[in-house]
Design a binder for these strands. Structure first.
Length: 345
RNA sequence: GGGGAGAUACCAAAGUGGCCAACUGGGGUAGACUGUAAAUCUACUGUCGUACGACUUCGGAGGUUCGAAUCCUUCUCUCCCCA
């Protein structure tokens, strides 16, 4: 199995973190797997377990999110998406086919389909035409995946992505379209792009009533600790998000007791450990006051410590959720946790 | 001892009669960040009030003027050059 990092400092630290706490994880800001929350029972990760080592895997994204986030620098065509490089202005065509090829080359254990992540708000007409495009791209990606081979000595999985904005009918249509493909895992995209959380939850309910229960359901780009617990309760198994690292770099620490903005003056003279309940070596090693000083001073070490803390917290959160599910106490635990997680310390 | 320059809000630094409660940085305070062009971005930052606004500010004192951070007099302090 490949040891997955994106080659970044971030990735390396995550790897160290993994060695440290031995948690199931997919690298690249993706944390955890295989849950069966709705029924409070454990589920294996479907066919994936047959060839995947969850401790050492790579998940790569397709660039579909960049179709959304870099909208100003791209042009959408039926054949694919043209991106203009912000570095030298050169143009590059991303297609459902070459995106599969690229992820094959990287050696990703999980390859994501190329899709359009629709913005929010988004009118029904646009969402519908976008969904049609995403579906046609999905068929092309699946075809490319089926007609090519892994380049290395491990298998690769291809995850389709459900879209449909915040429209239940479209989400239903998309989930059915995706489920029909019989992939070893399925993803839910196009959420947490600005819509109210309740709308996201409503979409998850619709989609998860259709996506197969015995295959991982991967909610892309989510989210806050509360978002994750709610999504787990709605049947999601797998997440990824920039939040622990980006928000960490900007001074936000997530803990089981609530959220700390370490830049706040109130922590200036607080020399207690960052998190006495934490699971990363940084938590007892450094004080809040010191971390605050590092972040405020713009020291890279501060961003690293905060990121490590947050990643460890996120991993603890999903592992704990896993244990609570296993012992049949997830729902009660979740209800108790949500108010704490939302608290501003 | 002689000559010159300068003193602006927490710091630095614009402004050189009305558009100045005073540009811009920094600092400070708070907020945002959800499949990472993001070690980023936003707001506020004299006092009181939610706000229209009111009141006190540009080294000190005095003066000119309808009106002064800006002009005049004087005092205090700082820096530079020559002895």
């Amino acid at each position: 199995m490949p040891v997955g990092t994106a080659g970044s400092v971030k990735g390396i630290h995550q790897q160290e973190l993994l060695n440290d706490i031995n948690a199931p994880i997919i690298l690249g800001n993706t944390y955890h797997l295989y849950l069966r929350p709705g029924l409070d029972t454990i589920r294996g990760a479907g066919g994936l377990h047959r060839f995947m080592n969850w401790d050492r895997s790579i998940l790569t994204d397709s660039g579909g999110y960049q179709v959304f986030s870099l909208a100003a620098n791209r042009e959408l065509k039926p054949e694919g998406a043209w991106f203009r490089s912000h570095i030298d202005g050169s143009k590059h065509l991303f297609t459902p086919e070459n995106i599969v090829d690229i992820q094959r080359i990287i050696g990703a254990d999980i390859i994501m389909a190329f899709d359009e992540c629709t913005p929010w708000p988004c009118d029904l007409k646009y969402a519908k035409s976008s969904l049609d495009l995403t579906h046609s791209w999905l068929d092309r990606g699946l075809e490319q995946f089926a007609t090519t081979e892994p380049l290395y000595d491990h298998n690769q999985a291809f995850f389709p992505i459900v879209q449909g904005s915040v429209f239940k009918d479209l989400r239903k249509e998309s989930a059915e379209f995706v489920a029909e493909k019989g992939a070893v895992g399925n993803a839910i995209g196009g959420l947490s792009v600005g819509e109210p959380a309740d709308e996201m939850y409503a979409m998850l309910e619709v989609v998860n009533s259709i996506l197969p229960e015995d295959k991982p359901r991967y909610l892309m780009g989510v989210g806050t600790p509360v978002n994750i617990l709610v999504a787990i309760s709605l049947g999601v198994d797998m997440f990824d998000c920039v939040m622990p690292t980006r928000n960490g770099r900007n001074g936000m620490l997530f803990t089981r007791h609530g959220i700390i903005n370490i830049k706040n003056r109130k922590w200036m003279d607080d020399f207690s450990p960052i998190d006495t309940d934490g699971h990363s070596y940084v938590d007892m090693q450094y004080s809040k006051a010191y971390l605050r000083h590092l972040i405020i001073s713009g020291e890279m070490l501060g961003a690293q410590i905060a990121s490590l803390h947050n990643l460890a917290f996120y991993l603890w959160l999903v592992r704990k959720a896993f244990e609570e599910i296993r012992s049949g106490t997830f729902t009660a635990w979740k209800e108790k946790m949500i108010p704490a997680l939302s608290t501003r310390l």
